[in-house]
Design a protein around this nucleic acid. Structure first.
Lengths: 114, 114
DNA sequence: CACCTGAATCACCATATGGTTATATAAACG
DNA sequence: CGTTTATATAACCATATGGTGATTCAGGTG
């Protein structure tokens, strides 16, 4: 549960989502990730820590650089939660529809309400 | 973009996710939603406001009660963002694999390194 | 060794968030 | 009309969040 807190929390910021989209195209260092934003380097480092906390990003030490790469597994987990919730809703919605249909067509078969 | 901020932000809290799961089974009033939590009524009302702000929940005035019902559309939108990002990653990953394969098998055709 | 460069860490600040209690509002009901 | 029930709203508090500038650290490179 706390996993999902960190996960969705990490995704709730536009800078972090932009960073993830960038990392989807391949690893990148902090300076490269910072380029598109009018933001200080420590701010980017903080965002990266949040993304790492959510398991969405991993560090790879390469000389003085720490390129980050995207880890897709948590994205799948988030998707699964969303789909489980929606499936549950759809199922209950379909069931409600069935009930309403039976109420509307209760005389069609003559079996439901003798 | 701000939509996704509110959306993922709304999902980043366990209480709110539990409320959504409950609402997936059908509409419910505030007192009913409060029941599972050791939390004051205003706290629940606040969470509901956040969910409404994200478009995940709608109110339906019924006498003194304001039952909430789940609105699934934003869940789909969130899912689509996650899948777009992951698809992008997978595509680039596959492309990298192809490059690596070509590097490994560069002598197989005799064309690459004469 | 001296010195860049990339990145981390520290100290700080303003605002947002998640909770509380107390109070107000609105509709049904005896 | 007064009361109960369900909910909203207000005022407040502690902590989290997102940002800043200043400093530190780690590795290449002259």
């Amino acid at each position: 549960m706390a996993d999902l807190d960190m996960l969705f929390g990490a995704l709730a910021d536009p800078t972090r989502r932009a960073i993830l989209r960038r990392l989807a195209d391949g690893p990148a260092g902090v300076e490269e990730l910072r380029a598109p934003f009018n933001m200080s380097q420590p701010a980017i480092s903080k965002h990266l820590k949040v993304l790492e906390g959510a398991g969405l990003v991993e560090v790879e030490v390469d000389g003085p650089r720490r390129p980050r790469r995207l880890v897709p597994a948590p994205l799948v987990e988030a998707t699964r939660w969303l789909e489980r919730t929606r499936d549950r809703f759809e199922a209950n919605f379909a069931a409600l529809d069935t009930v309403l249909d039976e109420m509307t067509n209760e005389t069609s078969t003559g079996k439901e309400t003798p």
